[in-house]
């Protein structure tokens, strides 16, 4: 029952409040299943995947580098002064690197890509939906999810770990800049601490997180845009705006939720 009608009857509204999120979750799960399976449908869409890699990966590079650099520098500053209280500033490299590789790298990279690319995807698909472009694909016997969503999903899975690696590297160098160059910790101490503190399982755990975040974030953003017309709170251009906002908020929350679940298994 649509929201407008259910509002007239409080009992119906209560029912709607329960049923709509369950329907929405089910729809999102089916959407993910379809977009994943259609990745393997012949012929493969190399051209579209490359175009999306350029959009998600290359065009996010600057913002990821900037975020990584400042995050690493802040961690270096905060870590140095905190550790110096206990005379442990020698483990600054370990503290910065582990924070970045295990947590901040995958999470902040996902946030940056969601903010830059995910919101754009949601807005594009939503405006295609309300102007019947998605229906037009269907009438041409072109599967809209295969055409629009699957290449984005593959591109995100390929780009997120690479961007995370770049974020981690720049962040560690940012920590070196603030901890060693500005505050005087020996560079040998910093880098040997990085090397001794970070294990392979920390790195692979971080990459596993980035892969999961890629699927969660891009699927959520595409889903919100693709089904913008089902939004209970708005139609037309308002539906586009709501889809974009919903995509960013929901995918960020889901990334943090997935982060907690993964961390609890990885530790």
């Amino acid at each position: 029952m649509p929201l407008a009608q259910s509002h007239r009857n409080p009992l119906a509204y209560l029912g709607w409040l329960v049923i709509f999120p369950i329907q929405d979750m089910g729809r999102q799960a089916i959407f993910f299943g379809k977009s994943f399976v259609l990745v393997f449908a012949w012929p493969w869409q190399f051209g579209k995947i490359l175009a999306q890699m350029h959009f998600i990966g290359f065009k996010s590079l600057l913002v990821v580098c900037l975020t990584g650099a400042f995050t690493g520098m802040v961690l270096g500053l905060q870590g140095y002064y905190t550790l110096a209280r206990f005379g442990s500033e020698g483990i600054l490299g370990t503290a910065v690197a582990l924070s970045l590789v295990r947590e901040l790298g995958p999470v902040l990279t996902a946030f940056m890509v969601i903010a830059r690319g995910g919101s754009a995807m949601a807005a594009e698909l939503a405006s295609m939906r309300i102007s019947e472009q998605i229906d037009a694909l269907t009438t041409m016997d072109i599967h809209p999810i295969r055409f629009l969503v699957s290449p984005r999903l593959v591109a995100a899975v390929l780009c997120f770990p690479l961007l995370t690696a770049i974020f981690d590297f720049i962040g560690i160098m940012g920590g070196y800049l603030s901890g060693s160059v500005l505050l005087g910790l020996g560079s040998g101490v910093y880098f040997s601490s990085v090397e001794s503190g970070v294990r392979m399982i920390d790195v692979s755990g971080g990459f596993l997180k980035s892969l999961v975040f890629a699927l969660v974030a891009i699927n959520t953003c595409c889903f919100r845009g693709y089904f913008a017309h089902l939004s209970p709170a708005g139609f037309g251009s308002k539906a586009v705006a709501l889809a974009t906002t919903g995509a960013v908020v929901q995918s960020c929350v889901l990334v943090l939720f997935a982060d907690y679940i993964l961390t609890s298994f990885l530790l």
Binding site: E132, D135, A136, T138, T139, M140, D141, I142, F147
Partner: peptide, 30 residues
């Protein structure tokens, strides 16, 4: 879908594509 063609009231053309890409799309994809 393959045997039918549909002209939408609001055209439903792909606004991020050129005219050529729009018209060629069903041929390129199908």
């Amino acid at each position: 879908f393959r045997r039918f063609g549909y002209l939408f009231q609001g055209t439903a053309l792909f606004d991020s594509m050129t005219v050529f890409e729009n018209v060629a799309l069903p041929l390129v994809e199908r």
